[in-house]
Design a binder for these strands. Sequence first.
DNA 1: CGCTATTAACTGGTATGCAAGATAAGCTGC
DNA 2: GCAGCTTATCTTGCATACCAGTTAATAGCG
Lengths: 214, 214
Amino acid sequence: MELDLLPGTPISENAIAHLEGVSRTPVREAILRLAEEQLVEVVPQSGSYVGRIPVSALPEAMLSRRALEIMLVRTATSRATPQDWQLLDAHLALQADVASSEDVSRFHHLDDEFHELIGHIAGLPRVWEHVQEIKVQMDRFRRLTFAQAGRMGLVVREHSAIVEEIKAGNLNKAASEMATHLTGLRSYIAMGVAQNPQYFIIDIDPDNLPDSAA
Amino acid sequence: MELDLLPGTPISENAIAHLEGVSRTPVREAILRLAEEQLVEVVPQSGSYVGRIPVSALPEAMLSRRALEIMLVRTATSRATPQDWQLLDAHLALQADVASSEDVSRFHHLDDEFHELIGHIAGLPRVWEHVQEIKVQMDRFRRLTFAQAGRMGLVVREHSAIVEEIKAGNLNKAASEMATHLTGLRSYIAMGVAQNPQYFIIDIDPDNLPDSAA
DNA sequence: CGCTATTAACTGGTATGCAAGATAAGCTGC
DNA sequence: GCAGCTTATCTTGCATACCAGTTAATAGCG
């Protein structure tokens, strides 16, 4: 998930088993779980490899995530109590702190946590769990091709705008701020794939990606 | 998934292995996959059981599904060609046919297929795959407690209304018809749980279910 | 008769060995 | 020097054996 291992890198059940001091069985079970999320590709009688990113998963994940998180932020807005506002503000402060420290990995974790908090406030924590599954390949793509300077500051500002609308109780504006926050990336896909085609499963035309009417 | 085995029924890896004439290993791998979707509960050193339905999954699945399918039907409406309209009409005719034959199981399959077709027309087939994962527990609940007479006819009429709006190219009306189609069930949860509490994991209060602001 | 302690028969978790197929290197024949 | 075949060594998939913990029935004791 964190792209420490590039897509296509061979994975050996035996090697991991020896490294961890266990047998192949639990290693194998773990790899099979990863294979279900397409994080690992298993080729029978040949080998297992760090999964390439299925291009078709990227636009679909973006659209699904946006639809779900808009629903979440609307619900959270209508349910949030002043205590929740406090939690959100405190989290924003933490985000700003880490953003200025330039710790990208830790910031990414906080970013997830912020969205999780909204799901929690909405009273729908399982929905965020699903969003996380959906966005795995998106996150891998981002790590692979996308290291925009000053991005963390922008994210914090967009999060702040969302929190403002939650506190104002304005469902529609909260939703549109979330939509703004979760739009983008799409235009980078074709470029990213063209630069490193070996890291992708090109199951759709990267120059003609599906779009939504939402 | 089809509730042939009621929640709580013990499952024996050994028994299945002998029945199928294979060893425990492949059986075990299958059970672990089912356990990830909470279709099986595995209790270490004790036993495995057909999964009880987590009550918290039901309202969240309904809301997620609705958000995603509204996005799908809007997209499908804006992309559908006259050939797609033909496919939809043909499918509706098939549905009407099976509905009159009272074959509930086959109709349920056709119902899924109709929604899958919309996802396909939208150019977002993976989203439907995710919806299917999300709605597993909802479907189990329906099979367990919900056998409303004349329901199939109603479903066909709602599907027809959706198709009409797709053909008319009216995104908003198509979306609201879909929303209507996917609303409900919520009010039956508390009753279903009260009648057969042993079939559920009561991880939230069934009399105070979360709602959305969508 | 009732309660407790013991034990025997399960369970899933793990380790290991073997089989079948894929792969790549090396050898043979030309 | 090169093409083609052979073979050695990988891989994953499956079968099997064993371990540790849970459970429930049973035997023994008060």
